[in-house]
Amino acid sequence: MEAMMPSLEPSVAEIQEAIVELLRAEEIGTLATIDSEGRPSASYMHFASDGLVVYTHTFSYTRKHLQMQQNPNVSYTIGYLPPEGYSGRRETRYLQIQGRATLVTDPAEIQRVVEVSLEQFPWAADTSMYDNIKVPDQGQQVFYRIEPVEGLWSDNRIRLLWRVLLEFGDGGKAIANVEDYNVVVGRRARR
C-alpha cells in the first residue's frame, strides 16, 4: 500500500475556484432563515451561482420570503457527496456560508438570474419555472441574492477533514481571508 503524501495547501485563488466549481455543479442545498422568535428554519432550495454570489428562487407567500424580509441574515450549505459513499470520502467537499439575502428588484438583474439559472440547470428550459418572474410587486415568484460574509470550506481532496474558515469581501465576490479551521478552534497547530 502506498503511503499518502500530504497535499500542499491550496492558494486563496485555488480555494475560490474550487468553491465556484462546486456552486456551479451542485444545484440543491439547504437554506436556513431566522423566524421572528430567533429560531432557525431550514429548507431545501435550488441555488444558481454567479461566482461566489448565489441566487435562490421562492414565492412571495412562503415563510422563508417573510423571514428574509424580516431578517436578511441567512446561512446555507451545499456539498458534493460521492455516489460511492464512505469509500469515496476523499472526494467529499462542502461549503457552509453565513450571508445576507437581498430581494432582487432590478428587472435587468432578474433577467440575468434567469439566464444564469437556465445555464446552470438545463432541465429548467423544458419547464415554465422562470417564465413568469417579474419584479416582486408584480408577481408571486421572487429571487434572492445571497452575498457570502463568512463561511467554512471543507475539501477532502486536500486531505481528510481539511477545513478553512473564510471571510469574503467586495460584496461577497471574492475571498478576503482564509484561516486554518483547526488552528482557530484550537484543535491543533498548522502543519
Rank of each mutant, 00 (worst) to 15 (best):
G139L: 06
V142M: 02
I158H: 12
L152S: 03
Y144Q: 00
R157P: 12
E147S: 08
I146K: 00
L161H: 10
N132V: 08
I146T: 01
D155S: 07
V135E: 07
V149A: 11
V142Y: 03
G151Q: 01
S154F: 01
W153I: 06
R159M: 09
R159L: 15
L161Y: 10
R145A: 09
Y130P: 07
F143V: 03
D137I: 02
I158N: 13
K134L: 12
L152D: 02
L161S: 15
D137N: 07
R159Q: 14
Y144L: 02
F143W: 04
D155F: 07
V149F: 09
P136A: 04
R157C: 10
N132P: 05
D137F: 09
L160P: 05
G139I: 05
P136S: 02
D155H: 09
D155Y: 04
Q141E: 12
K134M: 13
R145Q: 10
P136R: 01
I133D: 01
R157I: 08
I146R: 00
R157H: 07
I133F: 03
N156D: 07
D131M: 08
D137E: 13
G151T: 04
V135D: 04
G151P: 01
R159K: 15
G139V: 10
S154Q: 07
D155W: 01
D137W: 06
E147K: 06
S154D: 04
N156G: 12
N156S: 14
Y130K: 03
N156R: 13
S154E: 10
Q138G: 01
I146G: 02
E150H: 11
R157K: 15
V149H: 08
L160E: 14
R159C: 12
V149M: 09
E147R: 08
E150F: 04
Y144F: 12
L160A: 15
D155C: 07
L152H: 06
F143A: 02
L152W: 06
G139K: 11
N156W: 11
I146S: 02
V142C: 03
Q138S: 13
V142F: 01
K134E: 12
W153C: 01
Q138M: 06
N156T: 08
D137M: 10
Q138R: 15
G151H: 02
E150Y: 10
V149C: 10
Y130L: 08
Q140S: 14
L161F: 13
R157A: 15
R159S: 13
F143Q: 00
L160D: 12
R159P: 11
E150N: 13
D131H: 12
S154L: 13
Q140I: 15
V142D: 00
D155L: 10
Y144V: 01
K134H: 15
D131E: 11
N132H: 13
G151I: 04
L161M: 15
L161W: 06
V149P: 05
E147Q: 09
G151N: 04
D131V: 02
E147H: 02
I133E: 02
L152Y: 07
Y130H: 14
D137Y: 10
